[in-house]
Amino acid sequence: MIGLDTVPYGDSAVLVTATGGTAEERWRAVQRLADVIEADQVTGVRDLVATYDSLLVEFDCTRTTHDDVASTCRAASGRPVRSTTPPTTWRVPVVYGGEHGPDLPDVAVQLGLSPDSVVGLHVETPWVVRFTGSPVGAPMMDGSRLPGPISRCPSPRTRVPTGSVAVSGRQCVIYPVSSPGGWRLIGRTPAHLSPRPGDVVRFEPIDESRWHTGV
């Protein structure tokens, strides 16, 4: 059974967190809740961010209240949404390590593995897209087969190149555009993709010489 915790997040937002059940069930619950609230166009609600187990609901506090938004979420949580399209599997070529993945050695040290073993486990993982976030629809993925979590960079980089494949915690992301970022960069892809929540990404190692061939 999935429960919902709601806490105020500043004067104009509520953070809804799914509790109980499995991680998969919590993720489904918050994604579905976001779909329902988006479709309902609730008065005063300005924006939504649904991730793994939480939904941030931003609103105009001159038009609604924390309590009203929280009860709207609780009331909406059981409601069904329109059927969704089946998930897609994306095959994504990656140049691992070197200048394209400068943090690969650090990640290997953190895990007590060789860089090649890290790449092997990263490629072996069927990464599931949990949501698309910043920057500009970056796919946030989990399902990691790496043996442990990866810490973030102590200070975020001011510029991460387009296509960088990065890991943090037990998550993985592809940067669709160049942006600041605090995750560990292990490789880079020349491919562009536009995945949706629920899609699967399979990474395939390629040699740096194939970077410009369009793969």
Binding site: G10, D53, L55
Partner: peptide, 20 residues
């Protein structure tokens, strides 16, 4: 412990691992 990525509003004051 690491925190799972979640939505964050404008105005949030984060504490980075470097203490900034």
């Amino acid at each position: 412990g690491e925190i799972l990525s979640r939505g964050v509003p404008v105005g949030a004051i984060e504490v980075t691992p470097s203490g900034e």
